[in-house]
């Protein structure tokens, strides 16, 4: 379960961004992240790891919003895009296996919401 170390890195980055805006980490109300099916990151384990970290570090718990992305590839042969339903990496148009993942391997920090009244630089 590598989600613990990934979540620790996420929280450190959120804190850094808050600091960069002269905001207190306590003012963070929501953290929104995106997880793709090919990220190798399990959303449920991320949630568990986040709760555990907030407890351990006695952080005021900002909500963690997780958006799930779909798995999409772009064909290197016919250039059409396909949304995959499983992990068969084939173009939906020409069935070529020469495809590039354009969505689905994300583990991204999308946004941070600060509480009303927070002053930010």
């Amino acid at each position: 379960m590598h989600e613990i170390s990934l979540v620790r890195s996420l929280v450190r980055q959120v804190d850094q961004i808050a600091t960069d805006h002269d905001a207190n980490a306590d003012a963070v109300q929501d953290i929104t992240i995106e997880i793709g099916p090919l990220s190798g990151v399990e959303p449920e384990l991320v949630r568990m790891a986040y709760d555990q970290l907030c407890n351990q570090e006695r952080r005021p718990p900002a909500t963690l919003t997780i958006e799930l992305s779909s798995l999409q590839v772009s064909c290197l042969d016919c250039e059409s895009d396909t949304e995959l339903q499983d992990f068969t990496f084939r173009c939906g148009q020409c069935h070529s296996g020469r495809v590039r993942v354009i969505s689905g391997d994300e583990f991204r920090l999308l946004s941070i919401t600060f509480e009303e009244g927070a002053t930010l630089a």
Binding site: Q13, Q16, D20, F107, F114, L120
Partner: peptide
């Protein structure tokens, strides 16, 4: 919302919603 660039040093003015759009790969440093 305002867009937060990859540069950590750049301060971005915050708009009334107080949501910062960041859109950064969490493992980008690694």
């Amino acid at each position: 919302s305002s867009v937060y660039s990859q540069s950590l040093s750049k301060k971005v003015p915050l708009l009334p919603s107080k949501t910062l759009l960041i859109n950064r790969d969490i493992q980008s440093e690694n």
